[in-house]
Amino acid sequence: MTGVLDLNGLTVRLPGPDRPVLDDVSLSIAEGEALGLVGESGSGKSMTVRAIVRLLPAGAQVEGVVRVGGVEVGSLRGAALRELRAVVPVVFQDPRAHINPVRTIGDFLTEGLRTHRRLSRRSAEDRAVRLLDEVGVADGQRRLRQYPHELSGGLLQRVMIAAALLAEPRLLLADEPTTALDVTTQAEVMAAVDELRRERGLAMLFITHDLELAAAVCDRTAVMYAGRVMEVRASASLHEHPLHPYTAALAAARPSLERRADRLATIPGRPLSAFEAPDGCAFADRCAHIRERCREERPALRPLGDGQVACVRAEGLQVVFRD
């Protein structure tokens, strides 16, 4: 079945002596679905986004297939590549790094409409004001005359989301879009995104380090570690009954808002990148449930219950994690 996005065996190596950053990543997103991609530093979650829109560092080697709406993106060049980036927009963590500080919000939002779609200034601005209203920014006419420095981070991130919607995309890539925002602003921005997704049937790949945020706003969640997918499942069941030891450990390490723990359950060592990962299971050195065979062969991502998991002991451990 062809989804809005299909990744099949995606492997990315950066230039230099054997430096893989993504290792055999397979994921898919259905029409209108939100998939959360959760991981710590070096897990490869941002590289996955970059690989999809072909924004990898120069000299990166890519294996495997990326399809957007059934079209393979690996061979796109020139105008076709630009079109891909317009219909699969990315919203990044820091809006200020992705907007020209000396142009107005109006210039930023209408440039594409006027040069590519040949809309008049007037109708391009009307369109921009309607979009701003949709993402919860009232008084759009005034906002169009303002410069980025005159807007707060939360407001500017809404402008970025409005800009992402200009080409009427079916898939939105969001790379930690609310991480730099205050919690109350995060809630507002996520509410706007949530509403837009429902109204437009927009699919989303949502990158975050926050397992709880992914569980709250995404239909399914994938957990990545060292450039590999460890577990993919419906968000609620992944959050409540993790199958992979890494997911379970990550959930347990996070302090709870409801109660104070005597001690937090820690994971020994530090998160690894794909090129540092040991043979066999990438999480083996930090795992509390390791067996000999975990070091011998790399566990494949296989179907289990309502999702997929890459752990040979997953069936047996379910009982342990539920206690």
Binding site: A138, E188, E212, V217
Partner: peptide, 20 residues
């Protein structure tokens, strides 16, 4: 209420008066 968690539904609020 702004802390995300299972079952969390963020509240929608339109920014209008905020000047910055």
């Amino acid at each position: 209420a702004s802390v995300p968690g299972p079952g969390w539904r963020p509240a929608r609020r339109t920014i209008s008066k905020e000047t910055r």
